[in-house]
Amino acid sequence: MGIVASLTDAELADRLPHADKAAVKEVYIRYRELLLNYAKKMLGDDDLAEDTVSDVFANLLTKREAIKIDTSLQSYLYKSVKNSILNQFDKDQHRQQYINSIREFYQKGEYATDELVLERDLRRRIEDAVASFPPKMKEIFDLSRKAHLTRRQIAQATCVTEGTVNTQINRALKILRSKLTLFFIW
């Protein structure tokens, strides 16, 4: 049994900042299993617990000069494990939030963009088809669909019979259907 093994926790803690690798090794021997069990209880994952405890000891070794232990060594180590786990939870939560926001943007953004493109294309095709109607048919169709007039009101406004209005609207719709069939099939 070496000299370091006979030191108290307080004496070990005092030696850590002075680049004493033997002190770090002794802390590892004393607390690894305890910290590992603690991490396993918190995480429910043996491998992740092992990684967490290893990271705590790696930090203890690499940052030992900057370590300031104001409590007991045991409290410091348990707090280090707990903080490491909480940091991991935060990273995982932020990572998951980021993934979810990207997924949501992709799903909504792509869907909304596709929908807008299709809507604009459909509107343009309808406008082109209506623009190609004979003048009287276009006038009657516009009064029906844009001004929302009844067939009787359209007949009075255009000085034609209601039968003519019905015929013109039906022909206009037939032309639109034929011109837009490929669009809807696509």
Score class of each variant (00 low, 15 high):
Gln74Arg: 13
Tyr76Gln: 10
Tyr76Leu: 08
Leu77Gln: 01
Tyr78Leu: 03
Ser80Tyr: 06
Ser80Leu: 04
Val81His: 00
Val81Lys: 02
Val81Gly: 01
Asn83Trp: 09
Ile85His: 02
Asn87His: 11
Asn87Gln: 12
Asn87Ala: 13
Gln88Cys: 04
Phe89Pro: 01
Asp90Ala: 02
Asp92Gly: 11
Gln93Thr: 02
Arg95Thr: 12
Arg95Ile: 07
Gln96Leu: 10
Asn100Ala: 09
Asn100Gln: 14
Ser101Asn: 11
Ile102Trp: 00
Ile102Ala: 00
Ile102Glu: 07
Arg103Cys: 00
Glu104Trp: 04
Tyr106Arg: 09
Gln107Val: 14
Lys108Ile: 05
Lys108Val: 06
Lys108Met: 01
Lys108Glu: 07
Tyr111Cys: 09
Tyr111Asn: 06
Tyr111Asp: 02
Ala112Asn: 13
Ala112Trp: 00
Asp114Gln: 15
Leu116Ala: 14
Leu116Trp: 11
Leu116Glu: 13
Leu118Thr: 10
Leu118Val: 14
Leu118Asp: 13
Arg120Gln: 06
Arg120Cys: 07
Leu122Gln: 12
Leu122Lys: 11
Leu122Ile: 05
Leu122Asp: 08
Arg123Lys: 14
Arg124Leu: 11
Arg124Ser: 08
Arg124Gly: 00
Arg125Thr: 03
Glu127Val: 05
Asp128His: 12
Asp128Ala: 15
Asp128Gln: 15
Ala129Thr: 15
Ala129Phe: 06
Ser132Asn: 13
Lys136Gly: 04
Lys136Arg: 04
Lys138Asn: 05
Ile140Met: 08
Leu143Ala: 05
Ser144Gln: 01
Arg145Val: 12
Arg145Ile: 12
Lys146Gln: 12
Ala147Met: 00
His148Ser: 00
His148Asp: 06
Leu149Ser: 03
Arg151Phe: 08
Ile154Pro: 04
Ile154Arg: 08
Ala157Gly: 02
Thr158Trp: 03
Cys159Asn: 14
Val160Arg: 04
Val160Asn: 00
Thr161Pro: 03
Asn166Asp: 15
Asn166Thr: 11
Thr167Val: 10
